[in-house]
Design a binder for these strands. Structure first.
Length: 803
RNA sequence: GCCGUUGUGGCGGAAUUGGCAGACGCGCUGGACUCAAAAUCCAGUGGUGGCAACACCGUGUGGGUUCGACUCCCACCGACGGCACCA
């Protein structure tokens, strides 16, 4: 009887469902393990083969931990708000909710066919009002704490369609959909003050078990830098310019100053004869896209304002320029330029023939800027000091003069939290005609997204919600009229706290019960793609810290261990895409080979974290191996083979215990590919053995169960055990079975292998050396040579050094 | 340019603390079974030379440390991901 994957997989999926095998309880007597996947956006395309990779990894860990006595929380849900549904709805005249719910059903069905051990009772959906009630609640708390505010921010604006576009909708400066040229436009936006958490977001990374690359990306994104604020008076004026510098020690080398073209003081200090040049320059700048201002333009441009600043340290007058290489959004939008020791200032100074004064010894600043360390020169009281001493000395001096102070800056900016979209969580705010703004009262949450079949752009830059007058307009008891906020939240909102809701998904009173949170948090394993390295993970960490400060959650960080699965590439080693015609559909694989084969193959392809190309031959190889496992134990009539019995010839003793050890350790470390290869070795050995001891066979089936659960359940029952295998205690290995009395040692001459011998495990050094010298081939290489040295390690090797 | 990851047979990939490079799988070759084929089972398979024993070469490139280097150090090259004038 052959291995019939379809029958077996359906049978066990039904069994798990009916028996609620994977329903999680809050049994706090057991240690807990919380394994979570990044929940998917349920797109119309359905699952691709990349999804099952990460899902299988967390599923293996979940099943492995269950067998090791852990109480496992392994949930799944849907990140179901998002742009594609809205675009599709606009095109077809449907409501995004209906379309999304069909997609969710399709995704759920596909995911269930993979045999993943989720607790489906905890399924969540970010578009469910019972869920987004709490997303709105968190927003209200942020607002109450002063961490949510309104501000005019620049957005991508399609002037013909009159809609706001997301960055990813803008391709080469044009709208992806309409092809219209996109402009920058200031619009009122809701903004979250993530910068208030910048220090903690950097510092707390240190304790997380995350890939170093991701931590580095977050550190860089936050971009904390330490330096000084320095105040420069403007000559012949009462104005002051504050600059930010990381090199206050080079203050004696400052030879000019630069303001960002948008800097507020520009108009106030510019002289009459420069005003025309300035406005011309600004016109050119505003026509440039961000890309042109950064990437494409390495050539420095700028205009003199006609004004001078006074260097607080020596009273020198410094010309004040405007230039777009100084960014309005970073620091104070103003710098002191030290061309001798900064690449950008050097380039600018050369172009406009500004003075270049060296203040640090080393390098030749007539040729290139010197940015290294060195002793200070031409710097009065700083002369002879090294960089860090000079920095501290200067800051101390500035503080006594009240001309500056130490200052920390961040690259991180506040988070633009609103979207001019329909398909998102409504922001629970009302703008009243008397000019006040209030939150929707907590007891009225959730503020429901009104049902709409015809989504049309409002034309004003507001979301389609602005068209829905019934919902939009509201009158207070005292007759004051109000208008609801038409902005909705970004897709990041619902995903910033979903890991909390899985813990207590139906709680109507709060996000989740604190005792349950105390038991389950943090997430022990979080697996997903590296494309979320910064934004999602940073936003989730920010919200979590905020909730921690509120006392809602008991931990400072949400995700203790993070793993990024690699991408599955097409068989041509390129990223899978429709246009390249290299897309593999997991449904086809499940039908033709089975979910277990897909799971084994995806885990066997290579390390979880690396990119790997799909291979048609590879998948058949994995299937072949599962067939081989089946045939080892089950004969043509569907009976357990006679060789499987309580008789143990001893052939498999060593390999069995080795396999238990290796598989256990590999699973613990998520080295699934080598765990599978060890199981293959075991099966190869078993095929050569006459006797198949029943306890070894059941032990093997247990090792296989996390990876190929349907097949393992089936074999487990056929071998005479009671269903199900999921909570049966993991097999143990016997250390004593792993060591042999004899061991093969190698003989080297000058580090090259020249012979081998099998000797007693505890053979002493001298006997090993003697044996080595007797070896024929070794003699060929040491004959007539002087032995300089002999290295011997018992149980391993002898190395004879001749010369 | 900067930060991070990575480079091993025809292919995917193995190799605790430096100690037999290439486990396992794919592919390929041969054998068994079969009228034949498929499937299956068994064996072989880094390159060069040799009937063989065995020798030489071999982990991106060039140096170095060491009795011994895929592994450690220095310099360089290529691929992938991220950031991009952040003062």
């Amino acid at each position: 009887m052959p291995y019939e994957h379809q029958k077996i997989e359906q049978k066990w999926q039904k069994y798990w469902d009916e028996n609620q095998t994977f329903a999680t309880t809050d049994d706090t007597s057991k240690p807990k393990y919380y394994a979570m996947d990044m929940f998917p956006y349920p797109s119309g395309q359905g699952l691709h083969v990349g999804h099952p990779e990460g899902y299988t990894a967390t599923d293996i860990m979940s099943r492995f931990k269950r067998a090791n006595g852990f109480n496992v929380l392994h949930p799944m849900g849907w990140d179901a708000f998002g742009l594609p549904a809205e675009q599709y709805a606009m095109k077809t005249g449907h409501n995004p909710a209906d379309f999304t719910s069909q997609n969710v059903d399709h995704f759920r069905e596909q995911i269930k066919s993979l045999g993943l051990s989720y607790d489906w009772n905890r399924e969540i959906n970010t578009t469910d009002p019972a869920y987004y009630k709490w997303t709105q609640w968190i927003f209200e708390k942020l607002y109450e704490k002063g961490l949510a505010y309104e501000s005019n921010m620049m957005v991508n604006w399609d002037p013909i369609d009159r809609v706001v576009l997301a960055n990813e909708e803008v391709i080469d400066g044009k709208s992806e959909r309409s092809g219209n040229k996109v402009e920058r436009k200031a619009l009122r936006q809701w903004v979250l003050k993530i910068t208030a958490y910048a220090d903690r977001l950097v510092d707390d990374l240190d304790d997380l078990d995350w890939p170093e690359a991701i931590k580095e990306q977050q550190r860089h994104w936050i971009g904390r830098s330490k330096g000084a604020a320095v105040f420069f008076n403007v000559a012949d004026s009462n104005k002051k310019i504050e600059v930010y510098t990381t090199r206050p020690d080079t203050l004696f080398g400052a030879s000019y100053m630069v303001l960002a073209p948008e800097h507020q003081l520009v108009d106030e200090i510019a002289t009459e004869q420069q005003k025309q040049a300035i406005s011309d320059y600004r016109a050119i700048i505003s026509a440039k896209t961000d890309l042109e201002r950064t990437d494409l333009n390495k050539d420095k441009t700028g205009v003199f304002t006609g004004a001078y600043g006074v260097n607080p340290i020596n009273g020198e007058k410094l010309p004040i320029w405007i230039a777009d290489y100084v960014l309005a959004s970073y620091g104070t939008g103003a710098i002191m330029a030290v061309p001798a020791h900064d690449d950008r200032d050097f380039e600018f100074a050369q172009k406009f023939a500004l003075e270049i004064k060296p203040v640090i010894a080393g390098g030749d600043v007539t040729k290139e800027p010197y940015t290294g360390d060195g002793l200070h020169i031409n710097s009065d009281f700083l002369d002879g000091l090294d960089k860090s001493t000079a920095i501290n000395t200067t800051i101390a001096w500035l503080e006594t003069q009240e001309s500056g102070h130490a200052q920390t800056n961040f690259r991180l900016r506040d988070w633009i939290f609103s979207r001019q979209r329909y398909w998102g969580e409504p922001i629970p705010v009302i703008h009243w005609e008397d000019g006040t703004t209030t939150l929707v009262p907590e007891k009225e949450l959730p503020l429901l997204l009104p049902h709409a079949t015809e989504l049309r752009p409002s034309g004003s830059g507001e979301s389609p919600l602005a068209n829905l007058t019934d919902w939009l307009e509201i009158t207070r008891e005292d007759g004051v009229k109000g208008r609801r906020e038409t902005n909705t939240m970004p897709q990041w909102a619902g995903s910033s706290w979903y890991f909390l809701r899985y813990i207590d998904p139906r709680n109507a009173e709060k996000i989740a019960d604190l005792d349950k949170l105390k038991y389950w948090m943090n997430v022990d394993l979080y697996v997903g793609g590296a494309e979320h390295a910064v934004l999602h993970l940073l936003y989730a960490r920010f919200w979590h810290k905020f909730l921690y400060d509120l006392g809602v959650v008991p931990t400072k960080e949400p995700f203790q261990k993070l793993v990024n699965q690699g991408m599955i590439l097409g068989s041509n080693h390129e990223k899978m895409s429709k246009s390249k015609g290299n897309v593999v559909n997991p449904d086809d694989i499940v039908t033709a080979f089975g979910a277990d084969t897909l799971r084994v193959y995806e885990m066997f392809m290579g390390p979880l974290t690396q990119n790997k190309p799909w291979s048609e031959e590879g998948i058949t190889g994995s299937r072949r191996w599962l067939d081989r496992v089946w045939r080892l134990l089950i004969d043509d009539e569907g009976q357990v083979r006679e060789a499987v019995s309580t008789y143990n010839s001893g052939d498999l003793d060593k390999i069995y215990h080795q396999t238990v050890k290796k598989v256990t350790e590999d699973l613990e470390n998520m080295h699934f590919n080598t765990a599978i290869s060890q199981m293959m070795v075991f099966i190869n050995e078993a095929y050569k053995s006459e006797a198949l001891p029943i306890n070894y066979m059941t032990g093997f089936v247990q090792l296989l169960a996390p990876i190929a659960p349907h097949l393992a359940e089936e074999l487990w029952v056929r071998l005479g055990n009671k269903a199900s295998i999921s909570y049966v205690t993991w097999p143990q290995y016997d250390q004593a079975q792993l060591v042999d009395d004899t061991v093969e040692i190698i003989f080297q001459v000058n580090g090259k292998v020249r012979g081998k011998a099998t000797v007693a495990r505890d053979l002493d050094k001298d006997s090993m050396i003697a044996a080595a010298k007797l070896d024929d081939n070794v003699q060929n290489f040491i004959a007539e040579k002087t032995i300089r040295k002999v290295i011997a390690i018992p149980g391993k090797f002898v190395n004879i050094v001749v010369g």
